Amino acid sequence: MRNRLPAGDIREAGRALAERALDMPELAAGRTVAAYVSVGAEPATFPLLEALRARGVRVLLPALLPDNDLDWGEYTGPDSVRRVEHGGKMALFEPSGARLGPDAVTAADVVLLPGLAVDARGMRLGRGGGSYDRVLARLERAGARARLVVLLYDTEVVARVPAEAHDRPVHAVVTPSGVRRFPDS
């Protein structure tokens, strides 16, 4: 469904998503937020990244490593990201500055996660590369208490997604029409 969305709808969803997310107490109080730059038809994240930066929030962005783990760098504005091709399979927008290491994410108060869907239990369906599964495991090992928030379109909040033993529920999902919290996570 995402691939059929007009560019204007993607931009508008990004603006609405940013408004909803910025009203969340977790983001209002967060000093460091791990986020990502949307690609393709994902809900646009630049409006949210810019609003967080304008609030003085330290924003971390991922950089994909050869083993599918994620390193992190700081977002300081649109000029601080560059398009990076990964093996001809995909292109991502990654931080162009200094790398902080995979453990930098453990300092985040909130981790914004990409996904394809989230269900009524708060289980997130990712793209299958395992990058964010590693991030979530790293947070757990470090005893980090980051709030986990998925950014999706309204139609991507579904009754159930497949889950494996290592999957962990998120705390909330933000869509253009609102925020849904998952109390058991």
Rank of each mutant, 00 (worst) to 15 (best):
2 R>P: 12
3 N>P: 01
3 N>I: 08
5 L>V: 07
5 L>Q: 10
6 P>H: 15
8 G>M: 02
12 E>W: 07
14 G>W: 14
14 G>D: 11
15 R>M: 10
17 L>N: 09
19 E>I: 07
27 L>H: 10
28 A>L: 14
29 A>M: 09
29 A>I: 02
30 G>W: 09
31 R>V: 06
32 T>H: 11
33 V>P: 04
35 A>Q: 00
36 Y>V: 09
37 V>M: 14
40 G>K: 06
44 A>Q: 14
49 L>I: 08
50 E>C: 03
52 L>E: 01
55 R>P: 01
55 R>I: 04
57 V>E: 14
61 L>D: 04
64 L>W: 02
65 L>Y: 03
72 W>Q: 03
73 G>V: 02
74 E>P: 08
76 T>C: 04
78 P>E: 11
80 S>W: 09
82 R>D: 09
83 R>T: 04
85 E>P: 03
89 K>C: 04
90 M>V: 15
93 F>I: 10
94 E>W: 05
96 S>W: 01
100 L>Q: 02
106 T>D: 01
107 A>I: 12
108 A>G: 12
108 A>E: 11
110 V>A: 09
113 L>H: 04
114 P>E: 13
115 G>N: 15
115 G>P: 13
116 L>P: 05
118 V>M: 15
118 V>T: 14
121 R>G: 15
124 R>L: 06
126 G>W: 02
129 G>Y: 10
135 V>S: 08
135 V>N: 12
136 L>F: 10
136 L>P: 02
137 A>G: 13
139 L>H: 05
140 E>R: 13
143 G>A: 10
145 R>D: 08
145 R>N: 06
146 A>S: 14
150 V>C: 08
150 V>R: 01
156 E>T: 08
158 V>K: 00
163 A>Q: 11
164 E>I: 07
166 H>G: 11
169 P>K: 06
170 V>D: 03
171 H>Y: 06
171 H>Q: 07
172 A>H: 03
173 V>Y: 00
175 T>N: 01
177 S>W: 00
177 S>A: 04
177 S>Q: 03
178 G>N: 00
179 V>I: 05
179 V>D: 00
182 F>D: 01
183 P>R: 13
184 D>E: 14
